[in-house]
Computed example of a mutant assay.
Amino acid sequence: MLTVGLLVCGPAAAAAVVVFDTTFARAPHRRPVFQLDQRFSILNGKVVGTNGFKAGIEWRGRMRAGIGLYRLSGGVPTRVRQPPGTPPGTRDEVRFRYGVVYGEYVFIGDRRWELSTPLQVGIGGYYTKYSYPDGAVGRTKSEILYLVEPSVAAHYRVFRWVGLGAGTGYRQVFASGSQPEDQISGYIFFARVKLFLGELYKVVRGREQLFTQQGLRRDGEVVR
C-alpha cells in the first residue's frame, strides 16, 4: 500500500511509478485478462475436478468482468435410487457443464501479488450417466441448472505476463430438476494460471527477455 501513497504525492512520484512498474495493480487503463481455471470439490464423498477458462476485461487493476466455460472432468456418484430394472452392478454418475458471467474485485494488491473476491453466476446442464456391467452406456435427458459461486482468491505473479493462483469458495446450485442439489452444491477450492496478455504483448514488442523479473522487484530495480 506504500506505492499508493507515492501515486498521490506529486507528479514526479507518479511518473516514477509509471516508468518503474508497468504491471502495477492500479494501472489507469483497461486490459484483457485470460485465466485457465481448475476447480475441485468434494461431492458425495468423492473429489472431482472442473476444468474451465475465463476471458474478460480489467479496469484500473481493481475490477474485472467477463465470461467463462466449465466442464466436469469426472462424474459425481449419485445418491438416488436407480430406475427399476437396472442391472445389478450398474454405476451411475452425475455429469455437468456450465457457462458463467463473472465479476471480481481486488481489495489488496501490488506488483507481485493480490487478493480478490470473485463472484460467478452461471447456467448449464447436467445428466446422469449409467455404465452397465456389459459395457454399454446410457444417460438421462439433460436438465437445466443455475448456480452462484462466491469465492476468495489470491495469485502470485511469477513473471510480468503470467501468474499462479489459488482460492476457495462455495458452489450453490438452484433449480436443478429432480436431482438432489447436494450432488452438485458444495465447497470448492481451485488453482489457476493467469495470463496477462497486455504485458506479454509489451514484452514481445519491446524484444525484452521473456523470463525476467523486470518491473516486479521492489528494490534494486534497473530502470531501462
Rank of each mutant, 00 (worst) to 15 (best):
R31N: 04
G177M: 05
E208H: 14
R60T: 03
V162L: 13
W161T: 02
E181L: 10
R62Y: 10
W113P: 00
Y98Q: 09
F159W: 15
R64F: 06
V19T: 14
L210E: 00
A25I: 14
A14N: 06
V100A: 08
R217Y: 03
G56W: 02
T3W: 08
Y130D: 00
V48T: 15
P150E: 07
V18M: 06
K202Q: 12
G163Q: 08
N51I: 11
F20K: 13
V121S: 04
A16H: 09
A55V: 14
G215E: 03
F189H: 06
I57T: 13
T212H: 14
E104C: 07
R160H: 05
G109N: 08
T117C: 09
K194G: 00
W59Q: 11
Q38H: 07
L2K: 12
D134C: 03
V8M: 08
R112C: 08
Q209I: 05
F40Q: 04
G165V: 05
L147C: 11
Q213A: 14
R95W: 08
D37Q: 09
L147I: 09
H155E: 15
V18F: 09
D182P: 08
Q120E: 15
L115W: 10
R91C: 00
P11W: 02
Y187G: 12
Y146M: 14
I188N: 05
E221H: 06
V173D: 03
L195G: 08
F159G: 04
V137Y: 03
P77Y: 04
K194P: 00
A136S: 15
Y132Q: 06
G61L: 07
D92Q: 12
Y102M: 01
P133G: 01
G215R: 01
E143V: 03
F190M: 10
A191N: 07
Y127V: 01
W59V: 09
D21T: 04
E208K: 15
T128G: 00
V173I: 15
L6T: 01
F40H: 08
T168D: 01
V48W: 02
G135D: 09
G122D: 04
L210D: 01
R81Q: 13
V101M: 13
